[in-house]
Design a protein around this nucleic acid. Structure first.
Length: 857
RNA sequence: GGGGGUGUGGUGGAAUGGUAGACGCGACAGACUUAAAAUCUGUUAUCUGUAACGGAUGUGCGAGUUCGAGUCUCGCCACCCCCA
């Protein structure tokens, strides 16, 4: 019998064996309760990194434990396989994007398999395969049919490096592309959009259903949707019949309007501008086009604008106010026009100060010196003033009264506004899902008939990196007859944002092989919603919002002939969400030059110095990345210590939602623990039961075993505290080592329990031990342990004695829940006698099983 | 500026309002060894003390509630994230 722990050998052996046994094939026949465990699928960039490992190991432990607990588990994996890096590889290295992508998938699948994940590979999907994107196109057609996909001319975010359009969600706080990092430009283009704004209210209110999501993610989504309640008010333009509609969240301040602002792009801008202001306005408009949205709207940047020469009437006061254009007003938001109330809005206040516009206060601050002019905008609630019949109302009530009045008088109406804007899905790139539309000179935009799907990507394409979208240059693909009238027509050459692909993949896994329809709704409704979704916090807004949006739309498709009114029977796709923290590692940075230094060029890690300049380096933990030279390759860790050690380390080192600091010494610690576990289990012989009363040490060990079962089961139940679960495994292992009843069946039972409890965490090693210790079948099919509350009862307890709430010592007493008995033991103890000697005991607090507290005077 | 979060030993982190620091890492000491590695044993919050049992302080800071607060409440401070 082999008796040293050799991870490399046993891991590959069991990975192969499990595959041959089909051990992780999804159970589709039993009546067990279902559990859908899902990891966010990876982009096949070429190599697995530690973030992936953490993500998939967490999901795997959950899946394994749920299986042992008697669930039928769906635990699939796939590839978010469209996207720019494949196309860039094609341009740089002359490899076709498909070849590059499928090579990467094959390589990364192999890396994943080395982790010992209990994945059902029969359900693998790749979003770039025609079998998959056929249904992405089908969804698009349904969207189009339902008016949820539409084309619009718009000012779009243009990435000058990737030569494509980006969604708002893909532009970061500095106005840079999330992928290329280039400063995004504004460009007018006809683009395809999804009407996510139709679902804004549902996406907001249904957040309340998501009690299994981190509060943080729900808040971020709510902020992104950005609901505000206000009014559209109309300001007639003096000397014309036109009116300027403004959206405001503060109708209560309408009597304080001192000017009206149009967005520079607003169609009325050109119309109202007077001849003598035209030159200034035109110059300003062209200047604004170059600016990012962030620069235009940030509150701490100076606000700039130009007077158009025209005037508008405030319908409430009859006063005439100037019409301006300004950088901080965006055409896409609201009505593209705002009213300027300098006294009660920070930006308006700055603007008015800068251009010397009047500041009229209409809300009194509670503790304000009545005569002093405002030093800054007062944006809080208060009492209305200078507002005719509304004077004296509090501003919150006045908001509603003024909206009512505006509606009566025909000045405007109440309006709910969302910050969320429609999702721009057009991308001018090759490696994505072709939008299934043909543009016909007679019929306009014509959807490709469902029977003709998929519209396949052509393969004979040249990638030069020049001239934009390669698809648009491929005449043989572009030129097709119109599906309706047969006239020569042209295919849409835009492809879809890859976030479209990942917005519905979780609906496909339950019926991944279906080539007749997107999925059988009975099967998907059976498995969905996902019981536990695990992934990175970086998707808090983008992917998770889009996936929720898609789920609601697909739900509303209806199933017609099946007599169902809804295609999906649930509102939200992900019941529980776990956002795992980053994996960080040591970085060395030269504070003088700001450069990161590779660890292998540092001679003394305890006193790190720049090998070139000799400067003392800053040491910190940062997210692993190539540019910081701090990446740890999962494959190297696995080949050195084995996947089980890597799994244990990553789960033990930090709670799952927190950042994890990679530390080789801690990895070795886990390797040592697995070795101890190995030696412990390998030496035991199952004994036949000996009847009779258990000895004290047997009882103690049994209590320890059942405590561990309880603690680990609770740690894995919903809250997922893997770190404390593993510490319980260690404690149990320590207790077994120290036990002095090694011949007892209790001892054998303890070791067997330890193996079962450790199985989800270190699946290979435990499987090997299970077999070596004479068990048949896989430990992973063994039922999870049940704890016996009776076994937790101790004969003796440790009673804490407190005097005036301060712990003074402990005594061992026979276990009882009776408060009077416990108090009596405590009164008798030498501790109490010492501290309460000669004093009156005024009050006694007894917590059964825990403590006795004496209040003395 | 708004919203959310975090703050505990040398270190990662544990603690249903009930013995703060579980478990691990590191460090120190010892056993084994010619030696090292591996393994095993012990010590390890701070200050202080005795012959010995010990005592005081301690969860960012300051208040409060409570017999009792790392945990609950209020006010600060620092850092992080998201949105402006």
């Amino acid at each position: 019998m082999e008796n040293t722990y050799n991870p490399a050998e046993i891991e590959s052996k069991w990975q192969q064996s499990w595959t041959e046994q089909n051990l992780y094939k999804t159970d589709t026949t039993s009546t067990k309760p279902k559990f859908y465990a899902l990891s966010m699928f990876p982009y096949p960039s070429g190599n697995l990194h530690m973030g992936h490992v953490r993500n998939y190991v967490i999901t795997d432990v959950i899946a394994r434990q749920k299986r042992m607990q008697g669930h039928r588990v769906l635990h699939p994996m796939g590839w978010d396989a469209f996207g720019l890096p494949a196309e860039n590889a094609a341009i740089e290295r002359g490899i076709h994007p498909a070849t590059w992508t499928y090579q990467n998938i094959a390589h990364m699948r192999g890396q994943l398999q080395k982790l010992g994940l209990s994945i059902d590979w029969d359900r693998e999907v790749a979003t770039c395969s025609p079998e998959y994107y056929r249904w992405t196109q089908w969804i698009f057609l349904k969207f189009y049919e339902g008016g949820l996909a539409y084309q619009k001319d718009g000012m779009v975010n243009w990435d000058p490096i990737d030569l494509t359009v980006l969604a708002n969600e893909q532009v970061d706080g500095e106005g840079r592309s999330w992928r290329s990092g280039a400063i995004v430009e504004k460009k007018a283009l006809k683009q395809w959009y999804f009407k996510i704004t139709d679902y804004a209210e549902q996406l907001l209110t249904d957040l309340e259903q998501l009690s299994g999501w981190p509060e943080k993610v729900r808040t971020m989504q709510a902020n992104w949707i950005g609901k505000s309640i206000g009014a559209n008010l109309e300001f007639p333009i003096v000397g014309t019949d036109e009116k300027i509609a403004v959206f405001t969240t503060r109708p209560d301040t309408v009597y304080g309007v001192s000017y009206v602002v149009l967005a520079p792009e607003h169609p009325l801008t050109a119309q109202v501008t007077t001849p003598d202001q035209k030159a200034a306005v035109d110059a300003f408009v062209s200047e604004i086009k170059a600016q990012s949205e962030i620069d235009r709207t940030a509150e701490d940047k100076p606000k700039r604008g130009v007077f158009t020469g025209a005037m508008a009437t405030n319908p409430f006061t009859g006063a005439q106010v100037p019409i301006w254009i300004a950088d901080y007003v965006l055409y896409e938001y609201g009505t593209g026009a705002v009213m300027g109330v300098p006294a009660h809005d920070i930006r308006d206040f700055k603007f008015a100060k800068q251009y010397d516009l009047p500041i009229t206060q209409v809300i009194a601050a509670p503790s304000q010196n009545a005569d002093a002019p405002l030093a800054a905008a007062y944006t809080e609630a208060g009492t209305i003033m200078n507002s005719s019949q509304f004077d004296g109302l509090d501003s919150v009530t006045a908001k509603k009264s003024i909206i009512d009045y505006a509606e009566q008088q025909g000045y405007g109406n109440g309006k709910i506004q969302y910050k969320l804007r429609d999702w721009l899905i057009s991308r001018q790139r090759y490696w994505g899902v072709p939008i299934p539309i043909v543009h016909c000179p007679n019929c306009g935009a014509v959807p490709v008939p469902e029977a003709d799907l998929p519209v396949k990507l052509p393969e004979d394409v040249e990638f030069t990196g020049k001239g934009g979208n390669p698809l648009a240059q491929l005449d043989s693909w572009v030129n097709v007859p119109c599906p309706t009238c047969g006239t020569p027509a042209k295919r849409e050459t835009d492809t879809m944002d890859t976030f479209v692909d990942s917005s519905w993949y979780f609906l496909r896994y339950p019926d991944a092989g279906n080539d007749k329809q997107i999925f059988d709704s009975n099967i998907t409704n059976d498995w969905m919603p996902v019981d536990q979704y695990v992934g990175g916090i970086e998707h808090a807004v983008l992917h998770l919002l889009y996936a929720r949006f898609f789920t609601k739309i697909v739900r509303d498709f209806g199933a017609g002939d099946k007599g169902q009114t809804k295609f999906l029977t649930f509102d939200e796709p992900f019941k529980q969400l776990l956002t795992q923290g980053m994996v960080q590692s040591t970085t060395y940075k030269n504070p003088q030059t700001g450069k990161y230094i590779a660890p292998n060029s540092i001679t003394d890690p305890k006193n790190p110095q720049d090998p070139v300049t000799g400067d003392v380096l800053e040491v910190s933990f940062e997210k692993m990345s190539k540019s910081k030279y701090n990446g740890i390759d999962p494959e190297q860790v696995i080949s050195k210590y084995g996947a089980d050690t890597a799994r244990m380390f990553i789960l033990f080192k930090a709670p799952p939602e927190k950042d994890l600091e990679w530390d080789e010494a801690d990895v070795e610690g886990q390797f040592r623990f697995l070795n101890r576990l190995w030696r412990l289990a390998i030496g035991y012989q199952p004994k036949t039961a000996n009847s009779g009363e258990l000895s004290k040490s047997e009882k103690d060990l049994r209590r320890f075993v059942h405590h561990a079962i309880q603690a680990i089961t609770e740690d894995l139940d919903g809250e997922y505290q893997f770190n404390t679960a593993i510490s319980e495994l260690m404690k149990l292992s320590n207790a077994i080592t120290d036990a002095d009843c090694k011949e007892s069946p209790v001892y054998a039972d303890a070791i067997e329990t330890l193996m079962i409890l450790a199985a989800p965490f270190a699946p290979h090693m435990v499987e090997e031990l299970w077999q070596l210790t004479g068990h048949s079948g896989s430990v992973h099919e063994h039922p999870w342990c049940q704890f016996d509350p009776a076994a937790l009862e101790a004969d003796e307890i440790t009673l804490v004695i407190q005097i005036m709430g301060k712990t003074r010592g402990t005594i061992q007493v026979p276990a009882t829940k009776d408060a009077a008995t416990l108090e009596a033991y405590a009164r008798e103890s030498s501790i109490t006698k010492k501290f309460a000697e000669g004093k009156e005991i005024k009050k006694v607090i007894v917590v059964p099983g825990k403590l006795v507290n004496f209040i003395i005077g």
